[in-house]
Amino acid sequence: MAISKSQQFFESLWYRPAPWWLWLFLPLQLLLRLVVFTRRLFYKLGVFRSVKLSKPVVVIGNISVGGTGKTPLAIYLLQWLMEQGYKPGLVTRGYGGTAENYPLVMDDDTPPEISGDEPYLIYHRTKARLVVDPVRSRGGQTLIDLGCDIVICDDGLQHYALKRDMEVALIDQSRELGNGWLMPMGPLREPPTRLEQVQMTLVNGTDMTLEPQTIKGVGHTQPLTSKFVNGVAAIGNPQRFFDTLIQQGFEVLPHSFPDHHQYQGADFTDIEGPVVMTEKDAVKCHHFSEDRMYYLPVETRLTPEAEAALQRQILNLLQYN
């Protein structure tokens, strides 16, 4: 089902001047701040156990809810590292997957409903070693046992049970940090000061961009000829995808679904005309695809300065480990 109007309304409050009644949630925000502070302190003091792996760990994450471009950046890093002759692996929680046993080592036969949409997409785009495991330290160790010499942790900035050698935080340029408050008053999982502790912060829209590639059919090769399309997205920031389609010259009727939504054929019954979705959405639609369904793949492009800085730091990790 599509995102309800009430969901859209409350999320929109985080990215515009807030009404007075939003302050009623102040006690909950303060409680979350206390929980975040206490949790980090307990890991620092050793009250909670944090596992150090024998190979470098690079965490990609954000401090806000919603999409910031973590998956495309993970794909970029895996592809670049393999081009340099390394054997990277990626560990991820696999949100939305239904695996009964972990760690789950991805292979060509693992369906997206088992692994989750993002692991499926990353694996099939890169063919890198990929393990799905809510216990990321266990998943990371599995990657090392499989021969990986560096572990990329997708969306693990707040997963302190796994020690990391480098943290890369992503911010969406169009949304930034919203009103700067923690949930439920705002979109943040941790205070903005958390960004002072990461090794690198990338802004999706300035330091990096997601460049559209050629639109492809979902399970078919028919070309898209219409300039009117139904934009379909179940990602953290669907408007960014719709804006991309508009920039490509399409007239777009948007259809938003909850992030990681598990599509069914019935979701498209009332949608007339051609459909263009994200690649992450498309992997979940192959078993009921129609000739009117398409997806728009994207490639990560970093500015020369950001690319050089990111690559230099990762190569330094590999050199001294």
Rank of each mutant, 00 (worst) to 15 (best):
4 S>G: 12
13 L>E: 03
15 Y>T: 09
24 L>I: 09
25 F>C: 07
26 L>K: 14
27 P>Q: 03
28 L>Y: 06
30 L>Q: 09
31 L>R: 12
32 L>H: 08
35 V>S: 02
37 F>G: 14
39 R>W: 02
40 R>Q: 12
50 S>A: 14
53 L>P: 04
54 S>P: 06
57 V>G: 04
59 V>C: 00
61 G>V: 00
69 G>W: 00
69 G>P: 01
73 L>N: 11
74 A>I: 14
80 W>M: 08
80 W>V: 07
82 M>G: 01
83 E>G: 01
84 Q>H: 05
89 G>A: 00
96 G>I: 03
97 G>R: 12
100 E>W: 01
107 D>M: 10
110 T>V: 14
111 P>N: 09
111 P>S: 08
111 P>Y: 05
112 P>T: 05
112 P>Y: 05
117 D>T: 00
117 D>K: 07
124 H>T: 05
128 A>H: 12
129 R>A: 15
130 L>F: 04
130 L>E: 06
137 S>M: 03
138 R>A: 03
143 L>I: 06
149 D>V: 02
151 V>T: 03
152 I>S: 01
153 C>R: 06
153 C>D: 05
154 D>H: 13
159 H>M: 06
163 K>E: 09
171 I>E: 00
172 D>A: 10
173 Q>R: 14
173 Q>N: 09
175 R>I: 06
178 G>R: 01
179 N>M: 11
179 N>F: 11
181 W>N: 10
181 W>H: 14
187 P>D: 11
194 R>Q: 01
194 R>N: 07
198 V>I: 04
202 L>N: 11
202 L>D: 08
204 N>S: 14
205 G>Q: 09
206 T>P: 04
208 M>K: 14
210 L>W: 13
211 E>Y: 07
212 P>F: 05
213 Q>C: 00
214 T>E: 15
228 F>T: 09
228 F>E: 10
229 V>I: 15
230 N>Y: 04
232 V>Y: 03
233 A>W: 02
237 N>K: 04
241 F>P: 05
242 F>Y: 08
243 D>R: 14
245 L>K: 06
250 F>T: 10
250 F>G: 11
251 E>W: 07
251 E>C: 09
252 V>F: 10
253 L>N: 15
258 P>C: 05
259 D>M: 12
261 H>L: 00
263 Y>S: 11
264 Q>P: 02
268 F>S: 02
273 G>T: 09
275 V>N: 10
275 V>F: 10
283 V>S: 15
284 K>P: 02
288 F>M: 09
288 F>W: 10
288 F>Q: 11
290 E>C: 00
291 D>M: 07
293 M>H: 13
295 Y>Q: 12
295 Y>A: 10
295 Y>M: 10
296 L>T: 07
298 V>E: 07
301 R>P: 13
304 P>Y: 10
307 E>A: 14
308 A>C: 06
315 L>K: 12
316 N>C: 12
318 L>D: 07
